[in-house]
Design a protein around this nucleic acid. Sequence first.
DNA 1: ATTATCTATAGATCTATAGATAATGC
DNA 2: ATTATCTATAGATCTATAGATAATGC
Lengths: 211, 211
Amino acid sequence: MGTSGGPGSRRVGRPRVARRPDSGLEPRAELLAAAAELFTTRGYSATTTRAVAERAGMRQASMYHYVSGKEELLAELLESTVTPSLAYARELLADDTTPAEERLRKLCRADVELLCAGPHNLGGLYLLPEVRAERFAGFHAVRAELKDAYRQLLAATAAGGALAKGELDLRTDLVFGLIESVILVHRSDPERPVSVFAEATADAALRIAGI
Amino acid sequence: MGTSGGPGSRRVGRPRVARRPDSGLEPRAELLAAAAELFTTRGYSATTTRAVAERAGMRQASMYHYVSGKEELLAELLESTVTPSLAYARELLADDTTPAEERLRKLCRADVELLCAGPHNLGGLYLLPEVRAERFAGFHAVRAELKDAYRQLLAATAAGGALAKGELDLRTDLVFGLIESVILVHRSDPERPVSVFAEATADAALRIAGI
DNA sequence: ATTATCTATAGATCTATAGATAATGC
DNA sequence: ATTATCTATAGATCTATAGATAATGC
């Protein structure tokens, strides 16, 4: 199953017509990277299968050797934007030795870092209107679980414990909204150093939470 | 020039094939409303001229009697989402009898109300990736001016006056980001009473601002 | 023989124009 | 005569499949 292989190991199959420096990625990963860039900058529907394939260095039809179409690419990219944060959120929820305030701060910071990580503002995929389609219900479920983790941590803080349900929901929405707004802010200024930004956003989130 | 005319006044021209209860809107306004709904829910590129026209009650080709194409519709809708807020922001900047904190709060509240106004989450248009195109530079200019109004108000507050330039920019981004995040929050829960939400968001914005 | 790619293309759109038509206005 | 609409359609895509081809593997 060897990966794309070390230098010198020639690949099986007809050679690509556009030979380029080996990206070191598997063809499927090349397609995902190409899709990430195009979907986030031009949008999903505006991106053709030809554009994705060609950016990945192959012809349009060759793409179908690896994926069933655009939808599959988007679905996979979407999940990759929440899964790591969710895993971390679960860890934090299970940790009952650390104060909730601190855990909430950690989650905010990590979430912002993850949303801003990578070259293509992947978090921005979530803003695509097409994502609402039933096809992506899996992603929405994961995202709802992440939001619920925020709610639970918020409820466990001193300030949050005093809130009525409606109030807690509103605060959760505001905090979660602020975290997601980093997608927009990051989009408008991708140069900003992420760690400072993550810290400042976590601060802001805790202030909104009332801490 | 009479508008669509009072009841009973028949319209000139071949009748539409799909007769429907008079919406009371001019044909161009009907097209804009249809585009607003479709662009915000399905996205811009995913929306065909046929879909827009038919939702507006006419055939695809008839649309070209009123607009040059989809682009024109999006451009007009976009501007309509910032222009009112910007007008209000200018008023507030000119008013030097009211404390900056209060003016900032007012701008936040008004901006949220406007973003959530109307049936179709119009603010969400700004999230469309296609909006980055050069074609919409006009919109971006207006939006940048609105953001600058936030910056100026922020700088005029007691807390903001103490900030270095980089710090002020970061705060501005966070506050502006929070305001825009209402688009996302409103999208996920359109039922929430807007005035409460606007108040809570303004609160949150001022806390982020450090007030 | 197996594989990854290619070229070619059918079928399904989608946009924007041309030209016909069915109202009102004079 | 003027107008708002219609029907029809040319030209330009775009997707997904069929089948050919150029490598390596045995």
